[in-house]
Amino acid sequence: MLNKNEEKNLHNNQPEIVQKNQSSLYFFPFLTTFIIMFGVWMLLSGKFDPFHLSLGVISCAIVAFLSSDLLFPSPKLKGKLTVFIRWLCYLPWLTIELFKANFHVAYLVFHPRMMDLIDPRIIKFKSTLDSELGLVTFANSITLTPGTITVNVSIDGDFKVHAIDKASGDPLPGEMEIKIAKVFRKV
């Protein structure tokens, strides 16, 4: 946030109006970061007398002022909330898949002829997701679900996945990618 304002000051000859617009744009990311941080502060300190609360307000304000642009790279807040709510709706499905995956791997672990059952392989495919956050979510979900671990992701969406047997590697990208694309589609 500071850097961007300074750059504007350096490069623009009439920074007054631009800067004013920008600072009002940057207010909502600041407020959201502040509220999140203050919630975590209250949770971790557990003391609610005025002294500790004022300490929290001061330090959270400093940190939120310095680094609110890390949480919100662009000042546009429109649609962030809908994406977040959709992401929360995606979590239960992921949890069910996580349980299935774990029972599959636990079955493999306790099977006496495990060496014949597993057949590790590396699968490559290209994903159609375009947002970075979508790619990160997809990679973490692959690591958490049946018999597969993400080995490498490029920024264009080239995935390399290590699968433990044939059955678990085949259905990729499949249903999960469709669900994540639905979460991160344009608002």
Binding site: L98, V105, V109, I118, P120, I149
Partner: peptide, 19 residues
């Protein structure tokens, strides 16, 4: 047990990462 039994480094990561 999976970390002990699986044959190589990559497949050992499956139990370590998920279970």
């Amino acid at each position: 047990i999976g970390i002990l039994r699986f044959p190589d480094f990559y497949s050992r990561l499956h139990p370590a990462g998920k279970l």
